[in-house]
Measured scan of single mutants.
Amino acid sequence: PQECLLLEPGLNEIMANSLDYNERLWAWESWRSEVGKQLRPLYEEYVVLKNEMARANHYEDYGDYWRGDYEVNGVDGYDYSRGQLIEDVEHTFEEIKPLYEHLHAYVRAKLMNAYPSYISPIGCLPAHLLGDMWGRFWTNLYSLTVPFGQKPNIDVTDAMVDQAWDAQRIFKEAEKFFVSVGLPNMTQGFWENSMLTDPGNVQKAVCHPTAWDLGKGDFRILMCTKVTMDDFLTAHHEMGHIQYDMAYAAQPFLLRNGANEGFHEAVGEIMSLSAATPKHLKSIGLLSPDFQEDNETEINFLLKQALTIVGTLPFTYMLEKWRWMVFKGEIPKDQWMKKWWEMKREIVGVVEPVPHDETYCDPASLFHVSNDYSFIRYYTRTLYQFQFQEALCQAAKHEGPLHKCDISNSTEAGQKLFNMLRLGKSEPWTLALENVVGAKNMNVRPLLNYFEPLFTWLKDQNKNSFVGWSTDWSPYADQSIKVRISLKSALGDKAYEWNDNEMYLFRSSVAY
């Protein structure tokens, strides 16, 4: 590609939709070469300064400071330590791993069909083939991996386009969902002041979706909304933040926050679980009234959910574990990228498509890292959202599997949720969690119950496949010279610098 592309739109479109291996590689590498390399010296300084700040406030390091958001002291029976968070994340991840490994094996087999000769049947997945710029969410792999393609499509993007949905309609439908469970409408100022579409040439905007509580009843969302099912669900997520903000607005200023950061992320995700169900999509006209649910549509639905929800958990866990180790000084600065990709291979089963030396800073190419967000919130929120969903479905008197529950129109479920939201940070999160779900610790069981039918199906699908991955295989081993030459021509001086062995191999191949 010759034109100058922004991340959004532009590069993200390539990473969402392109099936051209080399075009995807160009976009993936260009973003890291342009952005990651510029941020490397800044990120090194950032780590030093943030650690100084944390230690001045009596924390061991900046990662310890972040984990302090979960700490509860002096509340008998509800205490929770920063170290306990690490333990809980690690042991819940071990419980999730078998499901993830089977999802990984299934996706690898489907990617082998889409990119023959580029995928190893026992290796890691190349990082640039996973549906977005970071491989964070695998949602866009659904069209390549759908188990029963002859069934009606449960990705309702086409239906939204056919019905001329726009950003306003998407957010109005999200608002209807919250109102149906007894939560309030958005304010008039929300509709007047939010930026729900890309302003285009009028001004440059950071398009990463964010929710804003500017105080004095001024709530806004910034999002360059596209007419897709993914953005339909994202709208519910962002509006969930606003509902939380509005619910605790009466609290004293210092207590106007989520019980912990994971709670804030979980609220909209609960609504997304219901909004994505075929039952709900039928009720708002995005699935045909004669759409029939059966075992095959159930597996299609659960796989689509797993690509988004299960596929991202190792990504989140590994990223934050790397940062915690960096802040603690356990990874020397001259080994940041080496350790990043070692951990990516070992924990996530994902491999870099071309080698990256220590001039890169791949983590900082992600919005949340370069903008100083702690990231473990996206792991804890996933466990909380299924715990909350299970409890709210019980309040809504849902009968049947958890993945079929739609809590819309249940004011009982809405009241149970609101009673927790309005507390803000005035009560320990362990107590707030217990008030809703009857337990005071994160628990992976509801998530595993939700995906149980899919897990059973995946194990059957993978019975003749290798489950797990070898960390030795690299996608650039066989194609390295071709890849390096093409990237050198595209990126010039910003391309990865060849070492002596690679230059010798190149000259030998040319001479041959």
Rank of each mutant, 00 (worst) to 15 (best):
R136E: 11
R136N: 10
F137I: 12
F137M: 08
F137K: 12
T139Y: 06
T139M: 10
N140W: 08
N140P: 09
N140G: 12
N153E: 11
N153P: 08
N153L: 10
T187S: 14
T187M: 03
T187P: 15
T187R: 03
Q188G: 12
G189H: 00
E192A: 13
E192Y: 04
N193W: 15
N193I: 04
N193D: 04
H208K: 13
H208E: 11
H208S: 09
H208C: 06
P209F: 03
P209Q: 08
T210N: 09
T210V: 06
T210K: 13
T210G: 10
W212H: 04
W212L: 02
W212S: 02
W212F: 04
D213V: 02
D213R: 04
D213Q: 01
D213I: 03
L214C: 09
L214M: 14
L214Y: 04
G215A: 13
G215R: 14
K216F: 02
K216V: 00
G217V: 01
G217C: 02
G217R: 00
G217Q: 00
D218S: 00
D218T: 02
D218F: 00
F219G: 00
F219M: 03
F219K: 01
R220D: 00
R220I: 00
R220A: 00
R220Q: 02
M229V: 09
M229T: 10
D230R: 10
T234A: 08
T234S: 08
T234W: 07
H237E: 13
H241S: 12
H241K: 14
H241F: 13
H241A: 13
H241D: 13
H241W: 08
D245W: 02
D245C: 09
D245N: 07
D245A: 12
M246K: 05
M246R: 06
A250E: 12
A250H: 14
A250R: 09
Q251L: 04
Q251K: 04
P252A: 10
P252W: 05
P252N: 12
P252G: 06
P252E: 14
F253T: 03
F253I: 04
F253E: 01
F253D: 01
N257A: 09
N257G: 09
N257T: 07
E261P: 08
H264E: 12
H264W: 07
H264S: 14
H264K: 05
E265G: 10
E265T: 07
E265A: 12
E265N: 07
E265D: 07
E269H: 08
E269L: 11
S272I: 09
S272E: 09
F301N: 13
F301K: 09
F301Q: 08
Q305W: 04
Q305V: 04
Q305M: 05
Q305S: 06
T308C: 07
T308E: 09
T308N: 07
I309G: 03
I309F: 12
F367E: 09
F367R: 07
F367M: 08
F367P: 11
F367H: 12
F367N: 11
H368P: 11
H368W: 06
H368C: 08
H368Q: 12
D372L: 01
D372P: 02
D372Q: 03
Y373K: 11
Y373Q: 09
Y373W: 10
Y373G: 10
S374M: 09
F375P: 05
F375K: 04
F375M: 12
R377E: 13
R377F: 07
Y378L: 10
R381V: 07
R381K: 10
R381N: 08
R381Q: 08
R381C: 06
R381L: 06
